[in-house]
């Protein structure tokens, strides 16, 4: 309701500006799901990555992030990304390392494909890579929240941020199509006890995310830590739930963020630590 007060775009602007894009993540099973569900591209939604600590959630998220910010000619999506680093764990140097590997790999493949060409694109050129890296991370916008309240307020103002980025988009700075939240469960215990707030944080952030998704048809990737340990199972399992179906009982997943959240989640990838 609050957002409807200002008329900031006309329908025509909206029509032209936000073309519906199919955003892939580079993670095969997630991509398959996105390709299958055409309504997902239209409406956006939440993809949840669930697992205990050390199962590779943050690593998976980094893979998706790299896939999103890489340029088209390297197989990426070349889109803007908002990254909520609620656990203060995002490591830019790790990102750089991974990007460097991708970058090198790309040039090696290229050289193999047309190996009779003299390899003028010297992939070992660190300077060139640094330029490339800077260009790519220019598409990434980081947000760090220290507590639940800040997270709420920030989520509420994210809509404005996305609009601002869209207005200033240029070659390096692309429109935001993806929002990553690492992790969504960071404030769980704090919310349980209830900080000195008069509002229920749990309901509000879900509401904020829902609004953002419907406004921008955003793809949201959220990691959720398995805070409550369940019986250990050794294989990787994926849970689909379309149309708000109940979760099959066989999965190791345990929902603790409430029903409202599981309604938003379109696809859940469960990682199991070996």
């Amino acid at each position: 309701m609050n957002q409807n007060l200002g008329y900031d775009t006309t329908a025509q602007q909206l029509f032209y500006k936000r073309e519906k894009k199919q955003i892939l993540t580079g993670i095969s099973d997630v991509d398959q799901y996105i390709k299958e569900k055409s309504q997902f591209i239209q409406n956006g939604g939440v993809i949840e990555i669930y697992g205990s600590s050390g199962s590779g959630k943050s690593e998976t998220v980094l893979q998706i992030l790299i896939h999103s910010i890489l340029p088209f000619d390297m197989g990426g999506s070349e889109i803007g990304v908002i990254f909520f680093d609620n656990d203060y764990k995002f490591d830019i140097f790790r990102l750089k390392d991974l990007m460097y590997k991708k970058y090198k790999q790309h040039f090696q493949n290229n050289n193999n494909n047309n190996n009779n060409n003299n390899s003028e694109g010297n992939c070992d050129d660190d300077k060139e890579f640094n330029e490339f890296f800077k260009k790519c991370i220019g598409r990434l916008h980081l947000l760090r929240c220290k507590d639940s309240f800040q997270f709420l307020v920030t989520l509420k103002s994210t809509s404005q941020l996305i609009k601002n980025i869209a207005n200033h988009s240029d070659e390096t700075n692309k429109e935001v199509y993806l929002m990553i939240i690492d992790s969504i469960s960071a404030f769980y215990w704090l919310d349980q006890k209830g900080e000195a707030l008069n509002v229920r944080p749990n309901l509000i952030w879900i509401d904020c995310i829902r609004k953002l998704i419907s406004e921008f048809s955003l793809l949201v990737i959220a990691t959720k830590q398995a805070i409550f340990s369940s019986s250990s199972q050794q294989q990787q399992q994926n849970t689909h739930h379309h149309n708000n179906q109940n979760i099959p009982p066989a999965t190791p997943h345990k929902e603790f963020l409430g029903n409202e959240w599981s309604k938003l989640v379109k696809y859940r990838k469960c990682l199991i630590h070996k």
Partner: peptide
């Protein structure tokens, strides 16, 4: 009310930083 909300948001929201800037700082 809207103005007040925006003003208050500015205080409490965490400030987005571009990863480029974050990289320099780091």
């Amino acid at each position: 009310i809207q103005k007040i909300q925006i003003n208050l948001q500015k205080i409490f929201a965490s400030i987005p930083i571009n990863a480029q800037q974050h990289y320099y700082e780091r």
